[in-house]
Design a protein around this nucleic acid. Structure first.
Length: 439
RNA sequence: GGGGGCGUGGUGUAGUGGCUUAACAUGCGGCCCUGUCAAGGCCGAGACCGCGGGUUCAAAUCCCGUCGCUCCCGCCA
């Protein structure tokens, strides 16, 4: 017999069906036995009269919650049943896998263990429907991204994650043994994205792992995360990148709202609002002025950057003034940007770059890249980089590389913003941090 | 890497010098009851209070160290 999803039982009243799922609750009574069985589509009550089949009844009594079961029976309408007004009359029961007892924790208990403990038992935590929903949403987000890229003639890249030399800073790289020498885990596909511009691919994207050896103990950092990278050619300024970014994001939001709007409201308590374009924009200088106006004390020692508290306050300000969840902060000083960001011709201390801040959280960094060999080499030297280690990169710009720009976005951070999650560890399948390598 | 906070049965909490034989909820085991549905009732098992040292007549409680977790900062996506 073919498996029926629990959500479809309401269309099969009176017909014998097979369902497969996990035992969520067993109410084992003297005369009757009630089982609540859950699959990814929902949950249903299954009823068995003990005297109907004493052998079956005994096997049910021996069941433990969260056991994996295959059940056949007949769904019937029953308005008395609070779970959907229907139930299933039990015919047969097969235990695929009996859950040991006690469980490490109750995924459906009144109180949940704290996050770190749940991460130890992630597969149990993921049985909670809200978590299953999160990853269905992530799947749809990525699908919407790809749809938009494909409609706009983007090519997907899969750049290597093993690198022979440190690319940008070097301080935040993981080192791995590579036969007789050392290799590094990629901390960004940046250089390879730009190589594709030199290759004439014109428009590319990549969704892939990014490794950062930063000992960051925050609710928004991971040592390995999924980066969403975009790069495209023949742009006139970073404003072309910003325009693409916001239209792309709007498309994603619309797709998610269409498919999941009500369930996001129900499970995450957040109304998903499709952001209007153009998104609000402020330059770094304006952001500074706004924060000063709000009496926010910026850390004096690091002029030119905004700290997380400032980002949150700026987000609040934009929300209040423009009723918008996102804001682009543009024109960052060269001191806090990498050498490959293009500078404003008329303001050489400022870069043609931007960050996208959503709900006070930094989610994207992007820029127009410097594609002129001489300028790029000079800027690298200014930053104190040895040209030998990046010569392979500089060479991209020797033989006809068009102007270009792009951005890198954190996938899990986008999920955090969309769903209003307080901790990135909930937004990722398996968290990797300085002290977590398992499971 | 710097700073703050927290570590108490499986889990979530209470207790912050003697009233503690460490409490409550949930989960687990047993029994009873019942077309139940956040089921209900009774009984039971389960914690040397993260670990090590110290102060005190007396430490879960105060001090020191250590480990773990967590939040903030730095760094970033």
């Amino acid at each position: 017999m073919e498996r029926t999803n629990i959500a479809d039982l309401k269309n099969k009243f009176g017909q014998p069906v097979k369902i497969q799922g996990w035992l969520q609750t067993l109410r084992d009574q003297k005369r009757m036995q009630f089982l609540v069985v859950r699959d990814p589509t929902g949950a249903v009550q299954i009823v068995n009269e003990r005297e109907h089949d004493p052998e079956l009844a005994a096997r049910i009594s021996a069941l433990t919650t969260e056991s994996a079961l295959t059940i056949t029976g007949t769904p019937i309408e029953n308005p008395i049943v609070k779970l959907g007004g229907l139930e299933m009359q039990l015919e047969s029961l097969d235990v695929n896998n009996l859950a040991q007892s006690p469980l490490p924790f109750e995924p459906f208990g009144d109180t949940l263990p704290e996050l770190d403990y749940r991460l130890d038992w992630r597969y149990m935590d993921l049985r909670r429907p809200v978590n299953a929903l999160l990853f269905r949403i992530e799947t749809a987000v990525v699908r919407a991204m790809r749809e938009y890229w494909q409609k706009n003639n983007f090519v997907e890249m899969h750049s290597p994650k093993l690198m022979g030399s440190p690319s940008e800073s070097g301080a935040e790289l993981f080192t791995v043994e590579y036969f007789e020498r050392k290799a590094y885990l990629s901390q960004s596909p940046q250089f390879y994205k730009q190589m594709a511009m030199a290759a004439g691919f014109e428009r590319i994207f990549e969704i892939g792992p990014v490794f950062r050896a930063d000992p960051s103990f925050t609710s928004r950092h991971m040592t390995e995360f999924t980066g969403v990278d975009v790069e495209f050619s023949w742009i006139e300024s970073h404003q072309d990148v910003i325009a693409f970014h916001e239209n792309w994001l709007r498309y994603i939001y619309q797709a998610i709202k269409d498919e999941f709007g009500p369930v996001i409201q129900e499970h995450f308590g957040k109304e998903l609002v499709v952001p209007e374009v153009p998104f609000p924009q402020v330059t770094m200088a304006e952001a500074y002025a706004i924060l000063k106006e709000q009496d926010y004390k910026l850390p004096p020692e690091r002029k030119g950057d905004i700290d997380p508290g400032g980002e949150r306050l700026l987000g609040d300000y934009i929300k209040k003034k423009y009723n918008h969840e996102y804001v682009f902060v543009t024109d960052w000083p060269i001191s806090v940007r990498p050498f490959y960001h293009m500078r404003h011709p008329d303001k050489p201390e400022l870069t043609r770059s931007f960050d996208l801040i959503g709900a006070g959280l930094e989610v994207t960094t992007g820029a127009q890249r410097e594609h002129r060999y001489d300028v790029l080499a000079r800027q690298a030297q200014e930053k104190g980089l040895g040209l030998e280690t990046i010569q392979f990169y500089l060479d991209f710009f020797k033989y006809g590389c068009p102007s270009h720009g792009g951005f890198g976005m954190g996938l899990s951070r986008l999920l955090m913003i969309m769903l209003g999650l307080p901790n990135i560890r909930e937004a990722v399948y398996l968290f990797r941090g300085p002290t977590r390598l398992h499971p």
